[in-house]
Amino acid sequence: MKKIIIASLVLVMALAPLAWAKKSFPSRNITAVVVWGAGGGTDTCVRIITAEMQKFMDVNINVINKTGGVAGSVGMSHAYSQKHDGYTLCGLSESNVTAGVQGGWDKKFDVWDTFIVGGSPDLISVTADAPYQTIQELIEAAKKNPKSIKAAASGAGSIHHLNLLAVENGSGAQFHFIPYKGSAPSQNAAMTGEVTVVVTSLAEQQQLLRGGKLRALGMLIPDSFEVADLGTIPSAFDAYPGLSKYLPISQAIGFAVPADVPREAKDVLVDTFNKAMATDKVKTWAKENYYLLSGKTGAESKAVFDALESNFAWTLWELGAATVSPETLGIPKP
């Protein structure tokens, strides 16, 4: 027994240097670290796109979830602390840009090079028994009695909360904001009659809308949206053009690599990402789940995330929910 152990140890020592041998990218499996929980929107999205990407590479992409910290800071720090060689991807979403001002991340977001798959657009809805049939009726009622209508969205500084704030700013109405732990609990609260208005994404709400449990009043994007069994949901911009000054604030789900990853590795990733985005699998999945695909990379996606970062960071700062001033991180005002 002892001989076997010693022999195997010698083998281990002898093989260790070999493990460093270099080959062209990618020569071993890639790990995608998703900073949000398994089963959530970001997780599913990253799993789908990486599954398609690995078909165009010789290696596998393993997806793991590393959650926790402030706005996913534990997973982001972990992914960033790995070698910047392109073998570690970081699965993230627009909400991660708040990690900086909330004190979980000491860098500006542009240390990442992002790849945006897409996101599901937000919309504003009311409970089925609410008297408001159109967005105008709701907004006018809210204007008449400010802060009387209860509106649910996930907690302070989430994308849905920002959308609700944008609606208030763009239309001049004021709601009584009740925060929930996520989209599902806020929708449940609308079902029990605890709140009247709810803002979540179409992907999260579609089953309730189609089941007649909630009534969609307006999409918070410039275009209307076609939903099966329901017809067309008009854009809220049609009735209140002022919204275009504040909206759309869209989800941007995808993954990122540190910006200083070698050129050749990044080129391979961009190339396979583009190929994967063009597959039928991804397109069908997006359609079935009410996602709008983006496919932006490089400078384009950087512009998207810069805009999101400045919007989120300054809004949180003004709400008093940020611990670090956006100025100290060098984030410009929107």
Binding site: G155, A156, G157, H161, L165, F177, P179, L319, G320, A321
Partner: peptide
């Protein structure tokens, strides 16, 4: 209790 009384009791926090 001594730690909790240091937490914000009024004013706006987190949009609420």
């Amino acid at each position: 209790i001594s730690q909790a009384v240091k937490m914000p009791m009024k004013g706006s926090w987190g949009g609420v």
